[in-house]
Design a binder for these strands. Structure first.
Length: 836
RNA sequence: GCCGGGGUGGCGGAACUGGUAGACGCGAUGGACUUAAAAUCCAUUAGAACGUAAAGCGCUCUGUGUCGGUUCGAUUCCGAUCCCCGGCACCA
């Protein structure tokens, strides 16, 4: 009889619900364990295979922990604001509120078929006022603490869709949706001051258990550079130009460098085209050239400008600067590769020791000066390319002869002493732009009053409701601007007429704190209760896609630190331990609707059931590895489940009738009992360790081995006692419970079990004394090659093994007549004989 | 270009801390059951040469991207090199 999964899975889902098996007990924080998956983004589509691959295995991990007696909290929710729902609305006319609610209901039903331990009483939905009220509260908290500010800034703009795009919606410089090239546009926007936390965000990476590559990505993203800002004076004769009489040589600008040791090698300086001093520095003879260049730069897209493959361009301003270390007069250039937004917007050109500068100098025939000497090279040898490694200083006055690392400090000291420099640390990290000119998000809780100016909405007036009746089709401005009803309001301060901010928040703001909301999701008084939050957080295990490495995961860390500093929580990091599942591709590409290569999990759950499908996803390959989808192997897990089911059907009476002890003394067991008892204990150990480490594939293969031992052993029938067989099958069922929960519950009931396996801590700790083998196979190597194997009692003495092996016929063949040069014995493993 | 991760049978993948490479599963081949097919069960399955009349068995060699090194012994450590995947992309 085939395993009737349909009947069994609905039966147990119903029973779990009735008996409240998945209910979390948050009032009791002892042995608490918060297991979390990245919540679902329901705006676009229903659950796909990737969600199953994220949620199923994570639930297996959480269930193991529950079986082991932990108080497990495993919530789920919906990241329900965002572009896809809005785009869908624009296309179909169905309001995003309606489509999202419908989708959430459908997804909740799908999630139930997964059989995870979700407590749906605690679910969150970021698009509901009871949630986004607190997202707005969070915004105001940052605002009050001067961590939210408004500034005019360039943003990604898609002219066809008439909207800003989030960075992640810009793919290869083009709009993800319509393929239009994205341009930069200046708009007044809200920012969160994440840069205040740059240093701490970097430092604390060392104390969290995250994949190393994710931490590296964050480190690179934060991009700390230690260097110095150096002041250059503008040469007085630069302004030979009579029209600039009010401008004399007291004008200065600064450059940022991490290589002060190369300061003597500066042969020019370069400013960003946006540099504030540019107008003053441009001489009349260069004016046309500079203006033409600025025009060209303006025409470039951000992508073209940032392209490393593009040929370097730039023009001379006509002015000169004075190098503070040696008073050399050097030309001031502008070039588009210098970023106005980083450092001081000006850099010193050291063509001898910087690749970019080398290329520019070659192109415009600027001098190249060698100031760092490569070991083993001559000082007068011409540089063929920039030398960027550590070396010895030359042509650097009193610093000649110093190692460049030491010279960095010496020259920095000197500059600080003469007041021409100040050590500085720069970060690549920029403040987080949170405004979106979109409808489907949390409104920014700020009004603009004619007399009071920018006014935050008082907390007791939250939420600022997102109006339903809005023309959300794209138009050149935020859809909310078209809602008179929304825009026009009164100032909470003075009561006069005021206008609301018409932008909504980036959905990453919603997801930057949702893990705090779960334990308090029913509380309408606060965003999260202080006590329960400090007891249940941080999250113990967080599982989700690696694509969030520098967005969501960085924002959530930032918000956590802000809430700590404002006294709301008492921990530094939101996610102590992080795991990324691999990406399942199909026909070599990421699954997506537009490619038409999405694999629907329903195809498999309908044919094989949820347990078999989730088992297969876990068995398929290591959890953190990506790879192409292939359903051929699912037969194997289907057979595995059915073989177990058949085994239980065949032995139902025996299993119910046989009683057994919790534990046996292994040496008292007879041969086949002993082998099975040992194998079962070995499997218990392996399954426990492998699931803990997210190595589900090997956990399942060891269970398959155990089943083979149980059913395939040639002499098994009749030579094994019912007692040990029954004992083993009970353990097998418990080991299956985290992996295939419905199935295991059913098997347990077939054996006479009355209570759910997930009540109480039913996991069995393996018997340490029953793991070790009595006999071991010793490999025999001669001159490094395997020649034979022999059986020995475990822990046999080296000398005994040596004597026995030398009597072995195969060994004799190789050894006789030759001298034994060396014998290496590795305990319980092998013996290696070297002959000459 | 830079930073990560990875190359193991026909396929997905195992292999503790340098110690018998290929666990487990898929697929394939042969067989049993069946009127037949599916399902199920059993056996074989890295490649090559050789011995025996043959099945079987025995035996030897090669083999973890490629080349080299360390070692009694290397998928594992070291150096070089090629390829694939992911991330960043002039941050001075």
């Amino acid at each position: 009889m085939k395993y009737p999964f349909q009947e069994i899975e609905t039966k147990w889902q119903k029973r779990w619900e009735e008996e409240g098996i998945n209910k979390a007990n948050l009032s009791e924080a002892e042995k608490k364990l918060y297991a979390l998956v990245m919540f679902i983004y329901p705006s676009a589509a229903k659950m796909h295979i990737g969600h199953w691959f994220n949620y199923g295995p994570t639930d297996t991990w959480a269930r193991l922990k529950k079986l082991q007696g932990n108080n497990v909290f495993e919530p789920i929710g919906y990241d329900a604001f965002g572009l896809p729902a809005e785009n869908y609305a624009i296309k179909t006319g169905i309001h995003p509120h309606d489509s999202t609610l419908q989708n959430v209901n459908d997804i909740r039903d799908q999630l139930k078929t997964l059989g995870a331990m979700y407590d749906f009483d605690y679910e969150v939905n970021t698009s509901l006022p009871e949630y986004y009220k607190w997202t707005q509260w969070l915004f105001l908290l940052l605002y009050k603490n001067k961590l939210a500010y408004r500034q005019n800034a360039p943003v990604n703009w898609c002219s066809k869709d008439a909207t800003v795009l989030a960075n992640e919606q810009v793919v290869d410089g083009k709009c993800e949706r319509c393929g239009t090239e994205v341009i930069r546009k200046n708009l007044t926007q809200w920012f969160f001051k994440i840069t205040n936390y740059a240093e701490e965000l970097l430092q604390h990476l060392d104390k969290i258990d995250w994949p190393e590559k994710t931490k590296t990505m964050q480190r690179n993203w934060i991009g700390k550079s230690v260097g110095i800002e150096i002041e250059f004076a503008v040469a007085s004769d630069s302004q030979s130009d009579k029209s600039k009489s009010d401008f004399e040589s007291d004008s200065t600008f600064r450059v940022f460098t991490t290589r002060p040791d190369t300061l003597f090698g500066v042969t020019y300086v370069v400013l960003a085209p946006e540099h504030s001093l540019l107008k003053q520095l441009t001489t009349s003879s260069q004016k046309n050239l500079v203006e033409n260049y600025l025009e060209e730069v303006k025409k470039e897209t951000e992508i073209e400008r940032q392209s490393t493959t593009k040929e370097k361009t730039g023009v001379f301003t006509g002015s000169y600067a004075i190098n503070p270390i040696n008073n050399e007069k050097i030309p001031i250039w502008i070039a588009d590769y210098v970023l106005a937004t980083y450092g001081t917007g000006a850099v010193m050109g050291v063509p001898g020791h910087d690749e970019r500068d080398f290329i520019l100098a070659k192109k415009f025939s600027l001098p190249i000066k060698k100031v760092i000497l490569e070991e083993g090279k001559l000082a007068n040898e011409e540089l063929q390319s920039a030398f960027c490694e550590v070396g010895t200083l030359v042509n650097s006055g009193k610093f000649d002869g110093f190692n460049s690392e030491i010279a960095k400090e010496k020259i920095s000291d000197e500059l600080e002493k003469i007041g021409k420099g100040k050590r500085k640390i720069n970060f690549r990290l920029r403040d987080w732009l949170v405004s979106r000119q979109r409808y489907w998000g949390a409104p920014i809780p700020i009004v603009y009053c004619e007399s009071c100016g920018e006014v935050p909405i008082p907390e007791n007036q939250l939420p600022v409701l997102l109006p339903y009746n809005v023309d959300f089709r794209l138009g050149g401005e935020s859809p909310l601007a078209r809602s008179e009803e929304f825009v026009n309001t009164t100032c909470p301060n003075c009561g006069k007429k005021a206008k609301r901010d018409v932008d909504t928040m980036d959905t990453f703001v919603d997801s930057s704190w949702y893990f705090l909301r779960y334990p308090s999701s029913k509380n309408s008084e606060v965003a999260f209760e202080k006590n329960v939050t400090n007891q249940w957080l941080p999250v113990d295990k967080y599982v989700g896609g690696a694509e969030h490495a520098v967005m969501h995961l960085l924002y959530a860390r930032f918000i956590t630190k802000v809430l700590r500093d404002t006294g709301y929580i008492n921990f530094d990091e939101p996610f102590l331990s992080l795991v990324h599942q691999g990406t399942i591709t199909n026909k070599g590409a990421k699954m997506s609707k537009s490619r038409g290569n999405v694999v629907n999990p329903g195809t498999f759950t309908e044919q094989y059931g949820g347990d078999v499908f989730r088992l297969y996803l876990m068995f398929m390959r290591p959890y953190d590895e990506s790879g192409d989808w292939n359903d051929e192997g699912i037969q194997g897990t289907w057979r595995f489940v059915n073989r177990i089911y058949q085994l239980l059907l065949d032995n139902k009476e025996m299993l119910r009738a046989t009683s057994f002890k919790a534990k046996y003394e292994i040496q008292s067991l007879q041969s086949l009992d002993k082998i099975l008892y040992r194998k079962t204990n070995q499997t218990l150990k392996k399954v426990e360790e492998n699931i803990h480490d997210f190595h589900f594939n090997t956990a399942i293969s060891s269970l398959m081995e155990l089943l083979n031992e149980l059913t395939n052993s040639p002499a098994a029938a009749g030579k094994r006692t019912n007692e040990i067989t029954t004992w083993c099958i009970h353990k097998l069922i418990i080991m299956l419970a985290p992996l295939a929960p419905h199935f295991a519950e059913e098997l347990n009931e077939m054996c006479g079990g009355k209570e759910s396996l997930f009540k109480g801590n039913k996991w069995i700790r393996y018997d340490e004394t029953a793991i070790a083998e009595d006999e071991v196979t010793i490999a025999i190597q001669i001159n490094g090659k395997l020649r034979d194997t022999m059986q020995f009692p475990i822990d046999s003495h080296d000398e005994i093994i040596k004597q026995a092996v030398l009597q072995n016929d195969v060994v004799k063949k190789y050894v006789d007549g030759k001298a034994i040069a060396k014998v290496v014995v590795v305990k319980n493993k092998l013996i290696s004989i070297v002959v000459k």
